[in-house]
Structure formats: structure tokens, C-alpha cells
């Protein structure tokens, strides 16, 4: 790495948990605006180049999001943001509370993802390594100061120390087969006490579902706006007349886990969870995903049900 230039960047702050995903999968985003009289429609595809600070777990999640959102036909807004955004992955020098990224195949450190790799030096100050041409061009534009000689070795040591002593509990992640083996009664038991509020979805770096509304600006002008949606909410699947295919909370709870640990792995070959632990940190009912996963892995290995016909 000594042959590659490194830089120092100052006055940056990693966004708090609930703002992380909002940097690239927006809480609220205008898709298009229109006038109901002229029926002139304007698509909103204008995205400025900007620096996006994420963690190594988010970078892994982003690879999955790309698979969904960039699959043709691609999501136009997301595609442009991915092209315009400079993704800087900030290494973790110690485990965060509740994180279990090592169990999901991740690491405290970035694994070559993103445009830049940042390692914290002191408060709001980072050592910058350039990973892509886009990252390089951005750094040139900022006119950043090159890192002093010898700092690279120091940073390497810090990274090595972090990997050597991650202080993180390792848990067993259930296999798709184990998830399938869990009977509905178990899910009812596990989901009991869930408020169905959606914070696990909102904080999840792999959740990208959204709802749309036509928002009134004035008498004739409206915007089609999308906002974060959450699959644990009853409204997520609710149709006109009150019909739904997912009639109760434990089934929705189960679907969330099935999606992350059964469907995504089988469809895309990656886990739908990157072990960030934010769904636990932000859950008002204190559902600990680590405990739930360990329990599911244990139960799923015990219970061997024949494939049941639907009741």
C-alpha cells in the first residue's frame, strides 16, 4: 500500500444509525411532479455528487441492494445516486454495541468495497485510502492533504489490532432449511410482544421497500413521493376494502426473517443480514436479533417437519 497515496480528511461525522441508509435510500424522495391541468410531468433525476459515509456492514448491504434496485428495469433514482455518490467506507476499530458482523461473514474492516476507505485517526479525522477512480477524482477536487510518511504503517497496525481483538460474540446464523423447519406456533411465540412498528425495517441496511403517495403542492400541482415502508406493518400489504394476504403480525414477522435468511440467500446467494445490530438497538420492544437467530438455528435443527399441505 506504500506505493498508493493516502490522505487525511477532517470534519467528517459518521451519521447516526437511523440516518445511515437515508444517505442513499431516502426516507422521502420525490419521483416526479406534475400539473393536473397541463399534464406536464417532470421526473426528478437530479442528484448532486456527494460524499456518503457508511460502515463496512453497510457496504456489504449495498452490494445486495444493487442486485435488487439495478436489476433491469433499474430504479432510475437509485441508479443515478449510485453513479453520483462517492461511497466512503469507515472502518470500525472496535465492535459496536449489538453488532454481530463477524457471524454474518463480515468484518470490522472494509473489504475493498466503496470508492474510499476511511480509518478513524482522532475525532472527526480520518486516514483516507483511495479505491476507485471516482474516489480519486473526488479527492483531487477536494484538494486534500497527503498523509505524512509513516502514518500508513501506523494505520495498518491499528487495523491489525482491531481484527486481532474484535471482542464480538459469535452466533449461529440459521440456514434457509432451518428457517423453513420452524412451525407457525413457534413464530407466534417469538413474535409475541412485537409492536409491529417498523423500526427494524427502517434501521435495516438491506431493507429498501417503499410506499408512494401523490402529494398536493397546490390546486394543480402534485408530486409522486416515495417514503420508507416496512413489511411488519399491516398497511404494507393492505388493499382497498381491507383485504390482505398477510393477515397477522406473526406471519409478517416470520416473513421478515424468511426474507433475510431464507429467500435472499436462495435467490441471490448472499445473506439478507449484515449483522449491524441496529434493529436491536432501535427496537422499542427490545427484540434481540442475535437471540432470535440463535433460537431459530437451534429450533430449526431440532424440528424436522414433513412438507405440509396448507390448512
Amino acid at each position: 500500500m506504500s506505493s498508493v497515496k493516502a490522505y487525511i480528511i477532517k470534519d467528517l461525522e459518521v451519521p447516526p444509525d437511523l440516518e445511515m441508509k437515508n444517505q442513499y435510500v431516502f426516507k422521502r424522495q420525490r419521483i416526479l411532479s406534475y400539473n393536473i391541468k397541463s399534464l406536464k410531468i417532470k421526473e426528478h433525476l437530479d442528484v448532486d455528487e456527494k460524499l456518503i459515509l457508511i460502515r463496512p456492514c453497510d457496504a456489504i448491504a449495498l452490494e445486495y441492494i444493487d442486485k435488487v434496485m439495478l436489476e433491469e428495469p433499474a430504479d432510475p433514482q437509485y441508479k443515478i445516486l449510485r453513479e453520483q455518490g462517492i461511497f466512503a467506507v469507515v472502518n470500525c476499530l472496535k465492535s459496536c454495541d449489538g453488532g454481530f458482523c463477524l457471524s454474518t461473514g463480515g468484518s470490522l474492516l472494509n473489504n475493498g468495497l466503496g470508492d474510499l476507505e476511511l480509518t478513524p485517526l482522532k475525532d472527526k479525522e480520518y486516514f483516507v485510502e483511495v479505491l476507485t477512480e471516482k474516489g480519486h477524482n473526488y479527492i483531487q477536487k477536494l484538494g486534500l492533504k497527503e498523509a505524512p510518511k509513516g502514518l500508513g504503517e501506523k494505520v495498518d497496525k491499528m487495523k491489525k489490532d482491531a481484527l486481532g481483538n474484535p471482542e464480538q460474540e459469535i452466533i449461529v446464523i440459521p440456514t434457509p432449511e432451518q428457517i423453513r423447519n420452524i412451525p407457525m406456533e413457534e413464530w407466534e411465540k417469538i413474535a409475541s410482544g412485537c409492536l409491529g412498528c417498523g423500526f427494524c425495517n427502517y434501521s435495516c441496511p438491506t431493507c429498501t421497500c417503499y410506499a408512494e403517495s401523490h402529494v398536493k403542492k397546490d390546486t394543480n400541482n402534485f408530486s409522486k413521493v416515495r417514503v420508507w415502508d416496512a413489511c411488519v406493518l399491516e398497511s404494507f400489504n393492505l388493499m382497498a376494502g381491507g383485504h390482505t394476504l398477510m393477515p397477522n403480525r406473526s406471519r409478517r414477522f416470520r416473513r421478515r426473517y424468511s426474507h433475510k435468511f431464507e429467500n435472499i440467500p436462495e435467490q441471490y446467494g448472499v445473506l439478507g443480514c449484515v449483522g449491524c445490530g441496529r434493529c436491536y438497538k432501535l427496537c422499542p420492544a427490545h427484540f434481540d436479533i442475535k437471540k432470535i437467530l440463535s433460537y431459530l438455528a437451534k429450533k430449526g435443527a431440532e424440528v424436522k417437519l414433513p412438507v405440509t399441505a396448507s390448512q
Binding site: 421497500c209 410506499a211 416515495r226 413489511c231 400489504n237 398477510m246 416473513r255 424468511s258 436462495e266
Partner: peptide, 8 residues
């Protein structure tokens, strides 16, 4: 958008 998710 995911709204019509039904199983896989």
C-alpha cells in the same frame, strides 16, 4: 417497492 411480497 416490495409491497406485493408474498413468501419468496
Amino acid at each position: 417497492c416490495g409491497n406485493c411480497a408474498y413468501g419468496k
